[in-house]
């Protein structure tokens, strides 16, 4: 994550990336198993608080991100609110049938999404992408050829973006000369993609041959950038675990929803 958006750094920055990923998968499974909307409501709030405190990112970015997460979370739950089954009708218009049950269920799905998004944002703000791959190699025993090809490919992202912009500009300049069908619609989509893909494959091939001859192919190897497990990892796991348990108790203490089962 670029340092420009950070205000301060916390212990979350020093947690091993592999641990973060495992916690993220664990949280995903936990969220699927939670059916009590009150529990999930508090878990979403706790995740937001963790993001707010631990990420150390400037407030404006957190505000923008939170807005986006809430908005997209709501939109992606509309299918259930509108068409879910239920008996207590709130609103009916044509094929849209909003019931109390479907509304709660829809909000539950939305809270699942935002809980995971808040946690995901925390990880993005506290992890360097290259560290993920170093950690995968050093702690996760991933073969170097996979990790280094990912890292090399990440470096190509700006080049791909630049190429796309160049292609757009080139087409703009020659607009009068090219038939429309090659620019818009499916034809245009394919011609753009084929251009980007073929250039990228060529570049990747050249780089791949160079890297293979320099011995990036197989181990054993030593590392300049070292990642290790530390006490911070334990703190992080315990913190998230505590959050999940605490939210269950909070859900009983303060219940914004009448039901305890969204199904």
């Amino acid at each position: 994550m670029p340092e420009a958006v950070k205000r301060y750094s916390t212990f979350a920055d020093r947690v091993n990336p592999l641990v973060k990923i495992f916690v993220a998968v664990g949280l995903f499974l936990t969220v699927i198993l939670i059916h009590d909307p009150n529990h999930l409501f508090h878990l979403a709030i706790i995740m937001f608080i963790l993001l707010f405190i631990l990420s150390g990112v400037k407030y404006i970015y957190i505000a923008l991100l939170t807005g986006a997460i809430l908005f997209f979370g709501f939109i992606s739950s509309l299918y259930m609110i509108f068409y879910g089954e239920g008996t207590t009708t709130i609103f009916r218009l044509g094929i849209i049938h909003v019931t109390e049950e479907s509304a709660v269920r829809g909000l539950h799905i939305m809270m699942r999404g935002i809980t995971l998004s808040f946690f995901g944002a925390l990880i993005v703000f506290t992890t360097r992408i290259t560290d993920v791959f170093y950690s995968l190699m050093q702690q996760g025993r991933l073969k170097p050829k996979y990790a280094y090809s990912f890292m090399a490919a990440v470096r190509m992202v700006p080049i791909i973006a630049g190429e796309y912009m160049a292609l757009r500009r080139a087409r703009k300049v020659r607009r009068a000369l090219i038939h429309r069908k090659y620019i818009s619609g499916l034809r245009g989509f394919i011609s753009t993609l084929v251009t980007l893909l073929s250039q990228s494959i060529r570049r990747a091939w050249r780089l791949g041959v160079a890297m293979e001859s320099k011995g990036f192919d197989d181990g054993p190897r030593t590392y300049y950038h070292r990642t290790t497990y530390s006490i911070h990892d334990l703190h992080f796991v315990l913190l998230i675990l505590l959050g999940v348990i605490l939210s269950a108790f909070l859900g009983e203490w303060f219940s914004p929803f009448d039901t305890v089962d969204a199904r």
Partner: peptide
């Protein structure tokens, strides 16, 4: 080989650009 993996990943990354735009339409 490393080259195979690299080419695979780069193809995928080109598509992840498409995904980013696609995500907007999808939403």
């Amino acid at each position: 080989t490393l080259t195979d993996v690299l080419i695979t990943v780069v193809i995928a990354l080109v598509f992840s650009f498409v995904y980013s735009i696609w995500g907007g339409v999808y939403t």
